[in-house]
Design a protein around this nucleic acid. Structure first.
Lengths: 154, 154
DNA sequence: CCTCCTGGGTTCGCAAAACGAACTGTCCTC
DNA sequence: GAGGACAGTTCGTTTTGCGAACCCAGGAGG
């Protein structure tokens, strides 16, 4: 009856959420995108318990989403900071998607944060685009097509 | 030093995660997008504890992301099913974003689920587009611009 | 009528996370 | 060598998630 019959065990959404779906993970990443790099700054901005933050940063580093980079500011001792890897940067659309939904349905007045194209200054948004270049107006224009898992003859 | 100085209390990402960021919420929605409508089917597909599922469906209905719709199959008593509202459908990009990241970094061989444009059959993906029509290759081309909160004279 | 079955839950006891406050250790400045 | 970030760790409490068991309504079957 429904199109719901495919192998969920390999589901990418579930997989991604297993990596970044814990509390604070995505918020940590958002801060990273906004330029936050140091433990204390994450802690201040988010107000998350330190123990949780330690854990989240740890798994993000483990997952190669953040990198721990040593650095030394002048006249200060060596510290390390957390920086996005390419794998981490590729999570940007997820954050933008969450942001746009919030802007549309939760914002009181105006969106608290705008995104603009660095080159041309125009507003940036996230959209569904097909390979022929059409931008789709809604999820209703998308057809999900389950792919067969690679069926290797055991 | 960083561009991290703006009012986080109204942050749309945090707001959205407060609504759909609990465990299972986004997975429930994914199932909904795949056509699942009934409690038992959600439960079977996800394997989530019933109590949690009851709670998640409840909040999603409360938040007007799902609607509880009564219906009656022939020869059966009246039941109700859960259907996406427009507000719920607008969360689709979030799921696609998670899916694409998982497809890229977690999939063993091929993505388990492909998306195609219902009209032209071409593959659909999620991309950052600016108002001038450029598609951006990376988050690095985006500049976040904090908007002042509406400062109404008390 | 009584019983079984299914769908859609609720209740309950246990386990895992999250929380916040306090404590640790290191290096730097004063 | 006192004080102060910074970057955590430890610990006791609260919240959340989990799974199994139980409950209720409405057919179907006998």
């Amino acid at each position: 009856m429904t199109d719901a019959s495919w192998d969920r065990s390999r589901c990418s959404v579930a997989g991604t959420l297993a990596v970044v779906g814990e509390k604070w993970s995505l918020l940590v990443l958002q801060e990273a995108f906004l330029g936050v790099r140091r433990f204390a700054d994450f802690q201040r901005q988010l107000g998350a318990p330190k123990a949780v933050l330690t854990d989240r940063l740890g798994t993000l580093v483990e997952q190669d989403i953040l990198r721990r980079v040593p650095y030394q500011a002048e006249g200060e001792r060596q510290r390390h900071e957390y920086r996005l890897t390419t794998k981490g940067i590729d999570l940007y659309p997820t954050l933008v998607a969450l942001m746009q939904w919030g802007d549309k349905y939760l914002a009181d007045d105006v969106a608290p944060l705008a995104l603009e194209h660095r080159d041309c200054g125009a507003a940036v948004h996230l959209g569904l685009v097909c390979a022929d270049g059409h931008e789709l107006a809604s999820a209703r224009e998308v057809r999900p097509v389950p792919q067969a898992a690679e069926v290797s003859a055991g």
